[in-house]
Design a protein around this nucleic acid. Structure first.
Lengths: 208, 208
DNA sequence: TAGGTACTGGACCTGCGGTATAGTAAAGCC
DNA sequence: GGCTTTACTATACCGCAGGTCCAGTACCTA
């Protein structure tokens, strides 16, 4: 009865799978339960995904694409709002922190990249490679922003810019762990603000 | 045939379980395989742990205790090596970074606290509470060190000291993700050094 | 009306978590 | 030397989940 298009059902499965994987881990994801939650038979699930690994691949791909789109969208909004690269970056971080803070009950659902890195032996080399590419792409996009800042004013101390770019993701991934364990969205947004404060110290001449 | 004491076998099981959980996640941990790897029958495993949840509890408990002991040991070594609190803290971070850098092939095995926070719905409230207490304890120990620094010299900008203490764990947890995904120990030690550089900027008067 | 799409239902196999029962080799004790 | 405890093994079993196979079927499009 294909009144419902394939894409819709696929996305519904991915939504439910993502929620479950972030809460219980990939190995504990039950395909029967997942199918039931998506109002499908077990075979209905296997019509869309050949097996669990293909599901994992699709989840990660969608997660990375969506995350990248949201990030780039926020970047373009901030660059429209102010001219100075440092102001743009600081504003971006404030927006990210505010976004995280508005997340209610239970805080951030979790980062699939971080979660899947703790399941990596479950996946094949393709999935791991996609994960690596996703991380390197994000580092590159953040580094673009930092590079623009550095071009205008040198940092207060010497620092590797790749590492500095990675540090944002580190604060976020670490902040997610705190937020989950302490069951509050505050530690996550606070970690973004710690990073923001670090960049201000590094680049803001008014503080020297 | 009790020529081997219970503790030894238990620790052997926990070692193997930890390795497997960090590589594949808790849900994918097979008790049959685990028992076989530990040269035990399946019933031999259940002699030591009543079920998977008790295994998880024991793993986390041991991980947290050992981690705390190593951390406190390193702290006492650094406090014997220099007098100034800032020097002690900066030295501690350098030692931690160096320790991480020496880890070969595949880098850091992973943080069980971070891994288990992505499996938390699998565990009971007791395990989650223990996890929370472990994180708060570690935050408190790091904050002790930062407090001593602040007592001697104020930070360059206002910053929440709890958040600053959390940031170290965030850099480490995030660094572990990078190290695992990029298959190198460097990103992890670099993240510790980024944190170190941040603290120097905040507290070192020579940089102002 | 033919063929593709998006499924359902049911049978089946394998393997795992977990339980139960019976047995056993070694060590410690009295 | 016998008794108990410790630390297991072996075998059998249950229920459930992942996954495969096959036969069908309601709807849509050409």
């Amino acid at each position: 009865m294909p009144q419902q298009v394939s894409e819709e059902t696929r996305d519904r499965i991915l939504d439910l799978a993502e929620e479950s994987v972030l809460a219980r881990g990939f190995g504990s994801l039950s395909i029967s339960e997942l199918a039931q939650a998506a109002a499908l038979s077990k075979n209905g699930f296997f019509y869309h995904f050949s097996d669990k690994t293909e599901l994992a691949r699709a989840m990660l791909q969608r997660y990375v694409q969506e995350g990248h789109a949201i990030f780039m969208d926020t970047v373009s909004r901030t660059s429209a709002m102010c001219d100075d690269p440092l102001d743009q970056l600081l504003l971006l971080l404030r927006l990210i922190a505010e976004h995280f803070e508005t997340l209610q009950d239970g805080g951030h659902p979790g980062c699939l990249v971080a979660a899947s890195c703790y399941h990596d032996r479950l996946f094949d080399a393709k999935v791991r490679a996609a994960n690596r590419d996703a991380i390197l792409l994000r580092r590159a996009r953040i580094k673009d922003l930092i590079d623009k800042v550095v071009a205008m004013r040198p940092p207060a101390v010497e620092v590797d810019l790749d590492d500095l770019a990675d540090a944002l993701c580190a604060h976020i991934d670490g902040g997610i762990v705190f937020s989950r364990v302490l069951n509050s969205s505050k530690p996550l947004s606070d970690q973004v603000l710690v990073y923001r404060s670090h960049l201000k110290l590094l680049f803001d001449p008014a503080l020297r």
